[in-house]
Structures are given as C-alpha cells and as structure tokens.
Simulated scan of single mutants.
Amino acid sequence: MKRSLTLPLVAALALTAVAGTAIGDGHSNKALEDAIKARKAQMTLVGYNTGLLGAMAKGETPYDAAAATAAASTLAAVAKLDRSILWLEGSVQGTVDGTRAKADIWTDAAGFEKAAAGLEAASADMVTAAGTDLASLQAQMKALGDSCGTCHKAYRGPKN
C-alpha cells in the first residue's frame, strides 16, 4: 500500500515543479508587460495634462487658473512616480512587444534619471506658473516641452 501511494506522489511533485517553472517564466514576462502597461499609462496622463495646459497656452481653450493648476498638479504627481517599478530591466524595444524603450535607459541610467528629473522639475514649476496667470503658464510650456523632448530623443526608439 505504501508503494502504491509513492509513485503518484512523486509524479504529482514532479508535475508541480514543472508547472511552477513554467508559471515562473510566464510571470517574469508578465511582470515586464505589466510594467510597460503602467508606464504607458503614466505617459498617457503626462500627455493628457500637458495637452490641457497647451490648449490654454495656445488660446484654444480659455485660461482657467483652477483647471490649469489641477492639470499641472496631476502632471507633477505623475512625473514623480517611482521609476524603479516602471522601467524594469529587460523591457527594451525589440525584446518585449509594446515598448519603444531604448537600451540606453539602462546603459545610461544616470542620464535617464537626469532627464526624468528634468520632467519632475519642469512639472513642479508649472504648478506655480499655471495658477499665476496665462503669461506665466505660456512661459513655462517651453521648459515643460523641452523636458519631454530631452528624454524622448535620447531614450525612446522609433515607432515600429
């Protein structure tokens, strides 16, 4: 009777080990895919709030200090999201679908961090400018746009 239970138990343990390895491999890829989705969401929020501010700066929508401050505050908060959980090593364009992240993000981590800190600073400055008046908002839009461009030129690959 002992012998008849041993074989199924060993088989079950072996199957569990194989399944665990397969799930572990899938989880690793899933983690990268989830990080890419999260940072795309971050960039969508950056674009949305920058668009609201830009529309006011261009006169496409009326300047509203409260709405501009809300957009700038959201932008500043989103810019400060923890990059260590969004930009996982291995989530490089050409390696994982759905990303335009260049390998330079990881090979030039200090440069990437500096570019990201530039967005944080420009966004923080926009909070004050946005609520002051239209001229201040307009003046800060260039710095905000430049901070986006600096990062995208160096660390974002071409569309596929």
Rank of each mutant, 00 (worst) to 15 (best):
V92S: 09
T132I: 08
K142H: 10
D108Q: 15
H152G: 10
G94T: 02
T95H: 14
A103R: 15
Q140A: 15
T128D: 12
K102S: 14
K153M: 11
T150Q: 13
R156T: 06
A135Y: 07
A117G: 10
C151N: 05
M141E: 01
T132P: 13
W106G: 04
T128E: 12
A116M: 09
A122D: 00
D125K: 15
R156C: 05
A109T: 11
S136H: 14
K114I: 04
G94P: 01
D108P: 00
A110P: 02
M141V: 02
A101V: 00
G145Q: 03
E120P: 04
V96P: 08
A103C: 11
G98N: 04
C151T: 04
E113F: 09
V92F: 07
D108V: 03
A139N: 10
T128C: 04
R100A: 14
D108L: 06
T95Y: 01
G157N: 05
D108F: 07
S147A: 13
A101Q: 06
A122N: 02
E113T: 15
L144P: 00
Q138W: 07
S136L: 11
Y155K: 07
S123L: 07
K142T: 12
A117V: 05
A154K: 14
Q138L: 10
R100S: 13
D133S: 09
G94L: 08
E113R: 15
C151A: 08
A110Y: 04
H152T: 04
I105E: 07
A103Y: 12
A135D: 11
A129Q: 05
S136T: 11
T107N: 09
T107R: 11
G111E: 00
A124K: 14
M126A: 11
A154C: 02
L144K: 05
A121Q: 14
G157T: 01
S147C: 01
G131E: 02
T107I: 01
G111I: 02
G145P: 06
T132H: 13
A110H: 06
A110G: 05
T99N: 10
Q138Y: 09
L144Y: 01
A110S: 13
D104F: 07
A143N: 15
R156P: 10
G131P: 00
W106C: 06
G111R: 03
W106N: 06
N160V: 12
G145W: 02
G98Y: 01
K142D: 11
E120R: 14
P158I: 04
Q138T: 13
P158T: 04
